[in-house]
Design a protein around this nucleic acid. Structure first.
Lengths: 199, 199
DNA sequence: GTTATCTTGGAACAGTCGTTCCAAGATTGG
DNA sequence: CCAATCTTGGAACGACTGTTCCAAGATAAC
C-alpha cells in the first residue's frame, strides 16, 4: 500500500528541459533544478536518477515535444519547397524572437558538451539528426514531384545539407545572429535547389 | 632588476587552446590546465588572469593560429568554386580524421557554452564569423568572375550560407558524423551555387 | 656580491558540485 | 484505524571548483 508521487514527473521534466535549454546543461547545477521544479533532491533522484540520466530524459523530452511535431509537420506538408522555406522561417523566428529567443536548440547545444560521449545521449543526437534528415528528405521529395527542384539534385545529399544548415542557424542564433542575415543564408541554399524556371 | 618568465607564454597558450578545444572549456578545470602546461597556478594567473580571460585568450589564439591562415588562403585563392570545395574537403578531413578528429571547432563549440555571454568572448565569436564570411565572399567573387556561379546568386547571402554550413559540419563532426555524409551535404549546396552549364 | 623586483611552488581558501542517507510524512489497501 | 510501502524534506558527504596568498627562488642591474 504505497504512497504515490506528489508531483507530475512530466511537468517537472518539462521545466528541467527549459532550464537546460536556456542556461546550458553543464552550467546548470542540481540546486537550480531543485529550485525550478520545486522538488526535493530525494524526489529528483528517485524519479530520474543522477544528472546524466536526467539530461538524457530532458533531451528525449525535447526531441518529442519540441522537434518531432515540427519535423512531422514538415514531412507531411506536400507543398514542396515552400514548406521548407516555411520551416526555416519558423525556425529563425523561434530562435531570434519570442519566449525562447537566443536559446538555440537543446540538441544542437548538446553536440558540443561533454555529455555527447555518453551512449544514451549520443543516441538521441543521432536520432534527432535522422529525424530531421528524413523530414527534409520527404519535403524535397514532394518538391520534386511538383517539379520545383532543379534537375540532378541528390535528395539525400540535399536533406543532409538542409539539416546542417539548420544546425548552423541554431548555433549562430544563440550567439545573437540577426534573423535577416540567417534567412538570407537559408534562401541562398534553397534557391540553389530550385529549378531555374521556377526561380 | 626583475626576474623573467621561466616559460614561453605563447607555447603555454597553445597547449591550453588544445585542451579547451578537445575536452571543452567548461569541462576543463584549472588543475588540468596546470598539469598540461606544467606551469604553477601562480604563473598561470599572473600571466593570463582568471579562467574567463584565459578562455578568451585561448579563443583568440585559435582564431589566429587555426582559422585565420585557412581563411586567408581561401580568400586569396582565385580558382573560384574549386577553392571553396577544397576548403570544405580540408575541413571535413580535419574534423573527421587525424590529430584533431572529433574535436570540432573551438569557436563553434564556444557558441553553446555559458561564456558566449561574456563580451570579450562574444566579440571573438563575431570576429570569427565575419572573417569566415569575408573569405567565403571573396572566393565566391572569384567564382563569379570566372563565370562559374549561377546567375542571380546573392554573394553576401551565399557567403552567409556557406559559413552556416561550415558550423553545421563542425558541430556534427564532434558527435561522430561520417565524412562522406558531410561532404555530400556540402556538395549539394555548392552544386546549387554553380552555373548550369558548369554543372 | 648586493639588492630590488619579479616569478614560482604549493598550501589554503570558501564555495559549489553531484550524490547519499535517514527520519518523518503521506497514501492506500485491508 | 492499522500497517505496509513509497515519497519527501533536509542535513550531510567527500570531491572538486576557481582563486588567493606568501614564503622561497631566480634574475638582472648596479
Amino acid at each position: 500500500m504505497p504512497d504515490v508521487k506528489h508531483f507530475d514527473p512530466d511537468a517537472a521534466l518539462d521545466q528541467v528541459m527549459r532550464l537546460f535549454w536556456e542556461r546550458g546543461t553543464e552550467a546548470t547545477g542540481i540546486a537550480e533544478v531543485v529550485q525550478a521544479t520545486g522538488l526535493s533532491r530525494s524526489s529528483l533522484y528517485a524519479t530520474f536518477g543522477g544528472k546524466e540520466r536526467l539530461q538524457a530524459a530532458a533531451l528525449r523530452h525535447y526531441l518529442e515535444r519540441q522537434s518531432r511535431p515540427v519535423f512531422d509537420a514538415l514531412a507531411a506538408d506536400e507543398h514542396g519547397l515552400p514548406a521548407i522555406t516555411g520551416f526555416f522561417e519558423q525556425l529563425v523566428a523561434a530562435r531570434c524572437t519570442g519566449r525562447h529567443a537566443r536559446w538555440g536548440c537543446l540538441v544542437t547545444n548538446t553536440h558540443t558538451g561533454a555529455a555527447r560521449e555518453i551512449p544514451e545521449i549520443r543516441q538521441v543526437l543521432d536520432a534527432h539528426h535522422a529525424a530531421l534528415r528524413t523530414a527534409m528528405r520527404a519535403a524535397l521529395q514532394s518538391a520534386r514531384e511538383r517539379g520545383q527542384v532543379r534537375p540532378g539534385l541528390d535528395l539525400e545529399a540535399g536533406a543532409e545539407a538542409l539539416a546542417l544548415l539548420a544546425y548552423g542557424v541554431n548555433l549562430r542564433s544563440r550567439a545573437g545572429a540577426e534573423a535577416a542575415q540567417l534567412m538570407a543564408g537559408v534562401r541562398a541554399v534553397l534557391d540553389g535547389f530550385t529549378r531555374t524556371e521556377e526561380r
